[in-house]
Amino acid sequence: MELWYTEKHTKNVRYSIKVNKQLVSVESEFQRIDVFDSYEFGRILVLDGYLMLTEKDEFMYHEMITHVPIAVNPDIKDVLVIGAGDGGAIRELTKYDFIEKIDMVEIDKMVIDICRKYIPQTASKLDDERVNIYYEDGLKFVRSKQDKYDLIIVDSTDPFGPGETLFTREFYGNCYKALKEDGILVNQNESPYYPNDAKAMQKAHKIIKSIFAVARVYQAHVPTYPSGHWMFGFASKKYDPVADLKEEWWNSLGIYTRYYNTDLHKGSFAIPNYVKELLGYA
């Protein structure tokens, strides 16, 4: 008998992973949550049928969504992470002693509970004493905050389902307000490759660009995401992600990473021409 998990990357493209066994499958108030054990990628978290992470390549995504902003501003102390119920972004943030407080807002408590139990690789640092977890809608949480955070990381799912409010103008406008005057916002910005993902990428970037003084995109290779080519957004009230990179400082910290380094940091903001065209920079 063979057991396969299949995700439809488009109507006409399927991506399948051979599964050893299904560890858990539950329906939360917000979505269906599955964890599989696979031969190739280790454990896999799947929400509403969409692959969220695998143990094998999650470091690529989580390192890029966290270390890039921190290497730009050494004074980051208060961080807000929205989404990220798997805990991977939190794990990376806790590598920095100077971060004083990490507020994490995840709408679905069950995702956190399941990751704690089945994917400790990412959830291991959720009990760090600097971490405060709020089980709320991200938009609702952020709209009551003002001038409070140095960094906001939006580690959302897709622009449909429970994460859809995290792709709206009102959300990013409220994030702007919740950031301090030198605040940075980093977001999961979808993929440029398949048309539906590209539309979401364009929309999110257009909204963020209309709100923040600095708005750039950068890329990473995440093999198990559709097309493997993934984008992040870097937005700031003040800092340029490349010109203001504190290269020597960051390297002096001696943080161990497997994907991120400061050369890659600079290079990741160099994007292909077709992506520039999509974003209106060509």
Partner: peptide, 18 residues
């Protein structure tokens, strides 16, 4: 659903702010 209501509330806040 709750999230549409949150969008409306948040957008009104933004309109007021801007």
């Amino acid at each position: 659903r709750g999230k549409e209501i949150e969008r409306l509330i948040s957008a009104l806040y933004e309109i007021k702010r801007l």
